[in-house]
Design a protein around this nucleic acid. Sequence first.
DNA 1: GCCTGGATTATC
DNA 2: ATAATCCAGGCA
Length: 211
Amino acid sequence: MRDPIDALRDQRLPASWFARDASIVARELIGCALVHRQRAGIIVETEAYGGPEDLASHARFGPTARTSVMFGPGGISYVYLCYGLHQLFNVVTGVEGEGQAVLIRAIAPHLGLPVDSTIGRGPGKVSTALALDRRHDRRDLARGALFIASAQTPPAVSTGPRIGVAFAGAWAERPLRFWWRDHPSVSGQRAQSGSRGPVAAARTVSTRRSR
DNA sequence: GCCTGGATTATC
DNA sequence: ATAATCCAGGCA
């Protein structure tokens, strides 16, 4: 039987797919597969981060040694150390000079991962599950063992405010977080207990997508 | 150079 | 509620 990773490789998204607004890419990434070597997870939660105008984005300081990759063309990885402990995986979006990226906040185990609903739930754990770290910063997702494959079937997607960006004032309230509605692998910040999950404040959005 | 504070997670 | 842990970015 054919290697399922090879099948995903045939669905690899090209740089042009990422050359759109972060909020569009973030929404359409739900249901896609994030692949690293022999491991893959289905993306179930993302957040869009805009350019310098977005006060929650690393791009708010303009291009720096760390964030200059965000100001390059879409389709390149941006991995950074958060709180001195966790590696957060992003994909640059838009075109040269814009400074946008999408954070992958959660994946569901797909290939080469233990079937455990807590694996890959939370942005730090996405990197742990797929063995990603800062060495994977600035990789071209159009080539190599690290890439994203298109979604097989478009899931129902909900939106809400981004998590952990309260410092950004009004920008913290914008609905730039996207997740697979009712999916058990969505992080929901601190577990999804009771009825107070993200669904409460959520709004289901169109599942239309270009093809 | 020094100081502050995180796009988090696990545990108390 | 809070510790862990370190470096980017602002300011002197």
